[in-house]
Design a protein around this nucleic acid. Structure first.
Length: 292
DNA sequence: CTGGGGATGGGGCCC
DNA sequence: GGGGCCCCATCCCCA
């Protein structure tokens, strides 16, 4: 199940009202929900976690390899010989507008994958015309819709547009050709089946909840609260086996796996089991399960 | 090299 | 429709 599994099921011909979605409050002010302070959202370009696809179960090395052996985005493949009809768009970019972090890319590139599947050592830069850099960069360093010679560029067919509004209308056309209901994000190439899902997604770009202590911004109030625990040291989740406490329930869950006799993730080659998928993945990368 | 903790992201579900 | 929480996933770092 891809983490973007919500990305795309289908809806109406409605066009999202971006002025309504991105209110002044969210862009320039404090989050009304978390009542945080107004701070500049100039954050380091933290590597975004990317999960191109949900690994099939049961977990095994093969599935790990399969997960990272993603096809290139359609428009990348189309750069060769005869390009397809630009409006016959393929699936949404597996990384949904975000390049994998460099360490992940590096580890993927060490896996002897066919050259077609290797990731670029350096991701192609997004055109950044002088004097308008702020408009192309989002809080946290995420890239907005790629800009081309005409200003903004369609992620599907690369057609250039001078304005975001023009690009948004054009992308809506892409959506309508494929599905009856579609709400594209103007900041990246994700698309949603409902306005609510899009609105929630846009918060990941606007990051309306800044930490009053360190200024780091989050998309949702509860994410901010979890972060604040890292400042206060509060650890409300306690392991029933060893009484160790954790600030995050997910981390407690991962910890509980270490008490379990039967680990959840098993290597298909050597049958060794691991408490986390990331450990299994690292095991696979280390050469236990050579690729095809 | 491996195991594990810490921190964080993001969509879904429920109220 | 929004908020809170759940669950899953990932990355980084350290022992």
């Amino acid at each position: 199940m891809p983490r973007s599994f919500l990305v795309k099921t289908h809806s109406s011909h409605r066009v999202p009202n971006y002025r309504q979605l991105e209110t002044q409050t969210e862009i320039n002010g404090a989050c009304s929900a978390c009542r945080g302070l107004v701070v500049p959202l100039l954050l380091p370009d933290k590597a975004a976690s990317s999960t191109p696809g949900d690994p099939p179960r049961p977990w095994d090395c093969t599935s790990i390899i399969a997960r990272i052996s993603l096809p290139l985005p359609r428009h990348e493949e189309a750069r060769g010989a005869s390009g397809p009809d630009p409006l016959q768009v393929g699936p949404v970019h597996p990384w949904a507008g975000r390049a994998p972090s460099v360490p992940l890319k590096d580890s993927l590139n060490q896996l002897n994958l066919p050259p077609r599947l290797l990731l670029p050592t350096r991701w192609p830069p997004i055109p950044d015309p002088a004097g308008d850099q702020a408009a192309d960069r989002l809080p946290g360093g995420a890239a907005r819709a790629p800009r081309g010679p005409g200003g903004f560029q369609c992620p599907h067919c690369r057609k250039p547009y001078h304005t975001l509004a023009g690009l948004a209308r054009h992308r809506e056309l892409h959506c309508r050709l494929r599905t009856p209901r579609c709400f594209p994000c103007r900041h990246c190439d994700k698309e949603y089946s409902s306005l609510g899902a899009l609105k929630m997604h846009i918060r990941t770009h606007t990051l309306p909840c800044p930490c009053a202590i360190c200024g780091k911004a989050f998309s949702r109030p509860w994410l901010l609260r979890g972060h604040i625990r890292t400042h206060t040291g509060e650890k409300p989740y306690t392991c029933s086996h060893c009484s160790r406490a954790f600030a995050d329930r997910s981390n407690l869950r991962a910890h509980l796996q270490t008490h379990s006799d039967t680990k959840k993730y098993q290597c298909k080659s050597c049958a060794k089991t691991f408490s986390r998928m990331s450990l299994l993945a690292r095991h696979a990368e280390s050469g236990c399960c050579p690729g095809p």
